[in-house]
Structure formats: structure tokens, C-alpha cells
Design a protein around this nucleic acid. Sequence first.
DNA 1: CTTGTTCTTGAATGGGTGTTCAGATATGGT
DNA 2: ACCATATCTGAACACCCATTCAAGAACAAG
Lengths: 178, 178
Amino acid sequence: MLRFWWRGYRATSVEDLVKATGVKPGSLYSVFPGGKHALFLKSLERYSKLVVPQKLGELAAPGASLAALRGYFDGLVQDLLSTEGRQGCLLVNTAIENATEDDEAAAVVRGHLARLEACMTTALRNARDAGEVRAGVDPAGSAKVLVATCQGLMVVGKANPDAAVLRAIVDNAFAVLV
Amino acid sequence: MLRFWWRGYRATSVEDLVKATGVKPGSLYSVFPGGKHALFLKSLERYSKLVVPQKLGELAAPGASLAALRGYFDGLVQDLLSTEGRQGCLLVNTAIENATEDDEAAAVVRGHLARLEACMTTALRNARDAGEVRAGVDPAGSAKVLVATCQGLMVVGKANPDAAVLRAIVDNAFAVLV
DNA sequence: CTTGTTCTTGAATGGGTGTTCAGATATGGT
DNA sequence: ACCATATCTGAACACCCATTCAAGAACAAG
């Protein structure tokens, strides 16, 4: 999973995976019928179930509010600025690299986007009920925009991992809500 | 350029380029010293100078206002929904696929993002002066967010090319401005 | 028509790719 | 200790990759 995350599907060779896991080709192909591609899909699922919830943090909780939402974005920026986090999000990378020609991978990405939107919608609804955002803000609608914005943050962060640029995006994205 | 746009850098082989252009390997390498990578950088520049201005349309004009800005986003959505446009934007794809390991490519992407932000800032400034957006809207700040949002639109569009989903993102992104 | 030069060709090169498989090794029940 | 079964191993396979280069074609000048 880490190899696909760091380097992408095409750039990761089976030899890389063999070296990284210590599992030799023969075993790898008997454990994962379907070879590299099957392993990739398993990696996407593993990322969805292990890494994503960890990054979501409080935002995944039903009582999440504006602070949790903001915390998610801040974490995203912090990751993009760190040496280890520059690879961004495996699912975003997959959307760009594979989604057009790999329907199974695209489906995993769609699932991720839907979950993210759901989390953000509840967080915004809670925030509105608590008076943390303007009354005019539509939780469902704003969640859709914020999902797109955070995917865009990854793209910008990859090309330009600059603290000021990324923080300005987040600041201004939240400024219109209050 | 089209090959790199459609399939990405790694997935495009020199043989593909030879077949597509009719230029045989020997000539190709004598015209482009540096081989595949040099040709890729030239493709990025060509895309920047030919395709991007065409997509920007009125938004590139100094007098562009809210309608031009909205038109750009609508064009983006329309492209993502068409069969030919599903490949998205070459520069966004490059940001994800190559930016971390290819500084030259990343620089071209950064230039594109800067230009886009400049266009959007002037459009928003014009819109504010004309009273088309709320007085509280900060042109420079909102432009940064809109740049990120439109990059995110590409990511979402690749995984989920659904008219309702994409239009909802654009509608809600503009809803907070008026 | 010659000659010198530029441009073009496509086969060859060395290395990397994903995948397979027969043989070696380990395991667990008797 | 035995053997049947499951597991692991790494060499071998066929193919594709980016790149090079010597041989040939096209061309312009005298």
C-alpha cells in the first residue's frame, strides 16, 4: 500500500513490492490471484479502512462540528508540507492516474468521496445548529464544495507545497462560512 | 501532447509517440535532445500556450466579470462530462503524476496555477466593483479558493463524471459569493 | 551528373516489466 | 520417523521500454 501511495500504480513495479514485503513473486501471485492489479485494489481498500479514518479523526464522529472540520483541513495542509506527507492522498492520486481506465479503482474513490461528503455535511449541520456558521449556509451544498476544495488542495499542494499558499486557501474557504 | 494528455507521462511509450506523429525514433531523438522527458516538457508548454487560453476564454480578458468566471466553470463541467474531455486537464494530471519527482514539470504547473489565480482575482474584483457579488467578498482570497475548487472539480469529475454532482459543486461554490 | 551535406530510417541494444512454474522447503498428522 | 500436503523460492519467460547508431535516402551546389 505504501509503495502505491508514494509512487503510484504504474511507477511501482512488482519487484519493488517483492523487495518491500519480502514476499517472493511466486507466493505473491498465489496469495493475490490477479497479480499486481488485484494487490492494488486491496491496497486501496486497506487505505480506505486504515489511513482515511485516522486522517478524518474527530470529523468522523457524529457530533463533529466546525472545529473538527477545520482540524481536518489543517491536518491536510500539515501533511502536504511534511516530507512524508507530500505524496498526498492515495485515493486522489488514483482518481487522476487510474479512474478513467480502471472502473474498480474509480468505484473505491467514489466511495471515499461519498463518505467524506457525508462527514462534512453532518459537521456543517451541527455547526449551523450551534450557530458557528452563518444561518444562510446550506450544510449539504457547502459540504460538496468543501470536498472539491480539499481535493484541489492536494493538487495545489503537490505542485506548490508552500505553507502560505495552502493556509490561505483553507482560511478563505472557511471565511465565507462564518 | 495529446498522448500525454490522454494517457499520462508514464503510460505513454515512445512507440506511441512515433506512431502518433509519424516521426521515427532516430529523428525524434535528434529533434528533441533529452528524449521522452524533453518532449513531455515541450508538450506541457504547448498545452499552456494553446489549450489553456482557449479554455479560459473570456476569463483571460482584463474586463472579465462574474459571468466569465461562471462560464469557465461551466465549460470545465461540460468537458468532464464529454467523452473527449474526460482526461481532464494535462497540468492537473501532471501535478499529481509527476510534480513530486519532476521539478521542471512542477514549475510549469505552478505557472499555470498562478495565471489562473490572477485571472480569477481580476474577474472577482470587476464583479465586486459592479456589485455582482457581496461587498464582503475578498477578490484575492476567494480567487485562491476557486482555483483549488476547480482543481478539485477535476479530481471528482475523473472518479465520478456525473452531471448532477459536478453542477452542484459549481452552483454551491458560487452561491456563497452572491 | 557528381559530390558533400543534411536528414531519415528501422533494426539493434541493454535493461526493466508482469507473470509463471518446477523444484525446494516447511508443516502437521499419524 | 514417516509421508502427504501446503507453502515458499528464485530462476526463467516473453514481452515492452527508452535510447542509439550505422546505413541509406534526399537534397542542394557546382
